[in-house]
Nucleic acid binder design. Structure first.
Lengths: 366, 366
DNA sequence: CTCCTCGTAGTAAACGGTTGCTATCGTGCT
DNA sequence: AGCACGATAGCAACCGTTTACTACGAGGAG
């Protein structure tokens, strides 16, 4: 009796297991190279051969292994997106744009929700680095912290060196030299515009409410807010700025608190629409009418803005387009069909516009 | 001059390129097997060796390649979820649960949004099959179509044969024998309970509004609706059922239409909270007060329910928990630590409960 | 003083594709 | 007829890890 031979290369496989390209090749009587070529259609294959291979694939229920493909090829056909909270419509709409554009480029979308921790955010980026995602998109405001920026910059470099890219979406870019794209919206401009809307209705005692103090989103919106005052050579009482968080709860409680503190204001600029929802609830509870007693504006123009009564005047941010643009920026240059003349801008800014609804009126007299 | 040697195996690599396990091994003076072992910690390695390897990894900024790992190992550490619309809070909350539970098990989450096409849904499942996702979760109502079920069943079998699994989340299971888990909520019970709530307030002329006719979600809710009538030996006028779609627009228009058609009803059962939002808008436009003139109930208990004025009475669905349970079901048995006594139920059902708010009152007299 | 047995580390064969190069065959040209 | 060439197909190296097996040195038992 012959000694047991070492496991032969073309060993017997579990007949139930997924088929490989070799199974297909064997059944079609061609080499794996040929199968690969008909799958990818990037190399001439005779029509008859192609038909035989396609037949074999169908018969076997062949499904390519994306990991083997990613390993051998150079692209993973996956983009990653990191948001802080997927149920927040602000992020959900951006994610929708990302996933739509990813799909359009034949890619899948890995979504990571950090629940708002910068440490978690970095860990997710590392995981996406392991996944060799074609692009990783960091969405939403950034904490303005030296150390954090350095950490993000380092990831950006690693991404770049593995042929991928980092895209900052809705947050300011990094320092020069760091290989990252930024796709932003005109945060300052929108804030200035809607503040001016309030100003031209006659309000000057405006309470600015919401947003974590350390977030770039907050500082940008506040900057726009102050700019609008400055443009009219008006002063703004610094006591009328209360930052802290986004969130309906927060908006509700702080509005109550502002009222209790006896703050003197005729309008409220809620840092976003969700905070505005809280503001509405608090005002309603205190029997204050909008806009008769207090005017309110929000930011983002997410669906709740039209659900609120009266409908909320707010700033529309092109969220979905922001997501799409981010993907385009991220995968530019990786496409075989990339236009060599389409030079990549390191940063693009989308416009914002104020949408006027029913929550602003003239200041209450007295 | 010597002939150019064939590319040597340990060729000079782009110094910028991502480091591989071989680079680390070389720098630490060990074999790749050893590096792999310190990374995975699943095999004894001397403390000094471990330290050297860890040092090398840090120095080089080594990041493991998830695809190579997936190819050589057996798990991909990725779960896939297919929803019809990621910005819809119903799906967003489920997705949140999925992503949280996936993270807890050390996995990433591939999110696919079909924008409501069953063909797109199947294509996404195929893509997830290519990705060899550890589990794929199909969320939301299913079209009740023979052919479609067959297609899903086939995917389920393919998934199962590659060690993965299909989980149906918020939709009925497949026929016996198809390897798929179902994680549902008590759709019928919730509908019956909230209908009974309306009934006990004195309403019997209830307009049921919304939901695609072919979706399992719709048929289940309608069944509960009718069950509640039957339980009280009451009849329901079939003309008071108008199905068609989910969506605020749809709810708005159909409410207007029902009013114009002179339908006789004192309450509206909106197929979900979003439809209810449309109902509110239409009623408001016609000067009808809630609940004085018309009572309204919804389904799902998503945030808009509390934003609406008056706050909407609705059925709470444990969305996030649904997502978590789906992941647990999907990856059960794949975990090294899997409890051998934890037998897998082919289906689990989560309870629903009606949450009473302010949108239901006694029927208007006259 | 052998022989085992641990405790560690290395070797090399997969995993399932992709792709640069080479080989083959039938034609159109000269 | 001889030859270069275009169209196809195959060979085999390679992508970066994991892991079954083998190898080796030291200490303990007999």
């Amino acid at each position: 009796m012959a000694a047991e031979p070492p496991r032969t290369r073309a060993r017997r496989r579990d007949p139930e297991a997924a088929r490989t390209i070799r199974d297909v090749a064997a059944r079609a009587g061609v080499s794996t190279a040929t199968v690969s070529r008909v799958v990818n259609g990037n190399y001439p294959v005779a029509a008859s051969t192609r038909a035989a291979v396609e037949r074999a694939m169908r018969d076997l229920g062949y499904v390519a292994n994306a990991h083997a493909r990613a390993l051998a090829g150079s692209t993973t056909r996956v983009v990653g997106i990191v948001v802080s909270e997927i149920v927040d419509p602000f992020f959900a709409y951006i994610a929708r744009g990302v996933q739509a554009e990813a799909l359009a480029s034949g890619r899948l979308c890995l979504v990571c929700s950090t629940q708002g921790g910068e440490a978690a955010e970095l860990r997710f980026v590392d995981l996406l680095l392991e996944q060799r995602a074609d692009a990783v998109i960091l969405v939403g405001g950034a904490v303005e912290d030296k150390e954090y920026f350095a950490a993000v910059g380092q990831r950006a470099r690693q991404l770049a060196s593995s042929g991928s890219s980092l895209v900052l979406c809705g947050r300011p870019g990094l320092e020069d030299g760091v290989p990252a794209y930024a796709v932003e919206y005109d945060n300052i401009g929108g804030a200035a515009a809607i503040t001016d809307h309030l100003l031209s209705a006659g309000h000057t005692k405006i309470l600015y409410l919401g947003g974590p103090t350390t977030l770039s989103t907050t500082t940008a919106r506040l900057r726009g807010f102050h700019q609008a005052f400055a443009a009219r050579k008006l002063e703004h009482d610094p006591r009328l700025v209360r930052t802290g968080a986004f969130g309906r709860q927060w908006g509700y409680q702080q509005t109550l608190k502002a009222l209790d503190d006896g703050l003197d204001f005729t309008a409220i600029f809620a840092a976003n629409d969700i905070v505005a929802a809280g503001v509405y609830a608090a005002l309603r509870e205190r029997g204050l009418r909008i806009p008769d007693d207090v005017s309110v504006v929000g930011y983002d123009d997410v669906p709740v803005a039209t659900e609120l009564q009266p409908a909320l005047t707010t700033v529309r941010v092109p969220l979905e387009e922001l997501g799409r643009a981010a993907v385009r920026a991220g995968i530019a240059g990786q496409e075989p069909s990339a236009d060599p003349f389409a030079h990549q801008q390191p940063m693009t800014t989308l416009g914002t516009v104020v949408v006027v609804r029913d929550s602003v009126g003239p200041p209450a007299t007295g």
